[in-house]
Nucleic acid binder design. Sequence first.
DNA 1: CAGTGAGCGAGCTTCCGCTTGACTT
Length: 773
Amino acid sequence: MIKNLVIVESPAKAKTIEKFLGNEFIVRSSFGHIVDLNSKKLSVDVEQDFAPQYEVSPDKKKLVTELKKMAKEAELVWLASDEDREGEAISWHLFNTLGLKAESSKRIVFHEITKTAILNAIEHPRSIDKNLVDAQQARRVLDRLVGYELSPLLWKKVKPSLSAGRVQSVAVRLIVEREEEIKNFESVSYFRTLAEFQIQGKKGQTIIAEYSERFKSAEEAETFLKKQVSGLFSVHSVEKKPGKKSPAPPFTTSTLQQEASRKLGYSVANTMRIAQNLYESGLITYMRTDSVNLSDLALNTTRAEVEKLYGSEYVKTRRFKTKNKGAQEAHEAIRPTYIDRTSIEGSREVKKLYDLIWKRTVASQMSEARLEKTNVEIQSTEADKMFVAQGEVIKFDGFLKVYSEGTDEENGDHPEGLLPEIHKGDDLNLIQMSTTEKFTKHPARYTEASLVRKLEELGIGRPSTYAPTISTIQKREYVVKEDRQGTQRKFQEFVLKDGKVTAKTGSEMTGNEKSKLFPTDIGTLVNKFLMQYFDNILDYNFTAHVEKEFDAIADGQKEWNDMIKNFYGPFHDKVEDTLNNSGKFSGERLLGTDPKTGKNVYVKIGRYGAMAQIGDTDSDEKPAFAGLQKDQSVETITLAEALKLFAFPRSLGEFEGAEVTVAIGRFGPYVKHNKLFFSIKKDKNPSSLTLDEAIEIIHEKREAEKNKIIKSFKEDDKVQVLNGRYGAYLTIDGQNYKIPKDKEAASLSLEDCYEIAKDPKNLPKKRGFKKKK
DNA sequence: CAGTGAGCGAGCTTCCGCTTGACTT
């Protein structure tokens, strides 16, 4: 007989709480939502007040059966899902699905996993807040209607299998628009002037200052420098001002992702995987949170730790308030569970992330750094404006002590950090002055992490969806994350030294990009389509606007079905109208005419992606088609490049009595020989590939094939033991089997292989998600 | 995995948020 059954959302949380509660309580987890709308259908009854048709999620069936049984046996069931919109809905679904009764179930909430918080929650149960549940239903239904009406429209008008949604489509829009800004950006050059002086009478004491005017042209810059040949320099003013710096608040999901990207180079998904690992080992608190709040327990232990490690002058207890409006704050900030664990065991990447979290948490509870800022103005007898040098000296490091231990570039020594002792009226000797051409920079492309920051700022998406959203827009091929090589750029420079001005030119790399998000042709096209017909949903304020309505529903001021009705009417009309009254949206671009045939040459997005086309679709003759290559774009491809694509398939000659051809397929360029395909690697150009090179590619592939075979059998050539991406596996007549862990792949006999194939356990499991293409 | 692209039509694709494993050839 179970006395008390407590249900929380996360199994790791269940384990911890069970320890606090003693043996009259059993704690189980729901693993998040247990019911959802069916993914194959709309599952919203538009005619019946938008009634959602919930089903137990397929992967939760077994769990629900177990929980049902336990709930029946228990005297009291405590619904302890998170204290936010989704959490309230989870409790409500548990109540309905498990068949609970009001008199034998209670709803409790806590937003930190400490003994006091839990015991306090048990003392103050409440009932399920149906208004909050309704706000969640509105959110769920709205997202379903938008996603499941817009996506099929895209399948018809643009390309199959595409998707659109309240969150992902705005993420794509941000990236597309940033790229447009960059394309339209006109870089302007200017000249920046730096001078190095020596303080008279003080050997070796130098100071570097910048002239406070930037010159627009090389002529202006050169004239200025020539004038300075006869200049006399002295200190016009020295101003010292105290300053201070305060630590950042503890981590939320979004700030953790940003910092781990900046300082450790982790992708957003990688950070979350490692954090999950730390959480499950009990080393950090929950990693999907929008709160910067620390529990009293955490504040106290951190204070003690700071005092122990650095002394009492470094202690400053702070409570941070979240500035983020959409925050629901069901959890604490991300922090080490035990702050006195200054380091942990594990892989390098796990240790580094823990270290980052530890430092950020500790620093947040330390005193501010005190600085002294110095501003020196230097005058020239030959110039109207001042040369300025700025210095910053740390008088008391405070929280910076913790950061300076790591490899943190942001707080590394600034060259202007230290200024020599200098006074008003000091005379200065000019050592050297230079004026260098610089260029204004276009706005930065998004990284995964900076995109998350922007989404959070707009209140779009939640801690649990930032990483999946970024993966979705890449999976749909709306955006790609990649490195791109920049170009060399020349710049001019004038140097004044020993009374002479010399002109120089230099060259520098510009436009190098590392792990940045670029829109693809299809991403750009889908965005254009959605902006044309559904700009209200792509509006950066759309989410903020509906969130206000969800809040009104949660406050009981609005019925959720009314809200959905008001939205759905015009939205659905627009979907229907677009469906019936607009043609295919292919982004077609006329490049020119084919010199051979005189026919028009187009590029556009088709059923299988970007393609070039010779001839008109409505003419009697069927047009010729050719797919674009991976690195080509509908936006930038030229007529000559497009025409080249039609030179395939191209015959190279004969090899071993069969024709060798080169062509470009769905997966890039390939060589075909004897009905076999051989991919051409990126370093070779298919347009200029020779027969010899093709034969070499064939030999390489054959060699690789040979190494792939661990074992084959004369008696039955259908049976092979092969080396795959995930280790050895067995294949019989095209069907693959796993090799049990207790068997050695290389020493399998033919009988062993048959034996393995008999056991259905060794069949590869079907993937949980859909196959690619 | 590799011959496509109009149109015919079958059958498929798709959302956001809450949570972990299971497991890929």
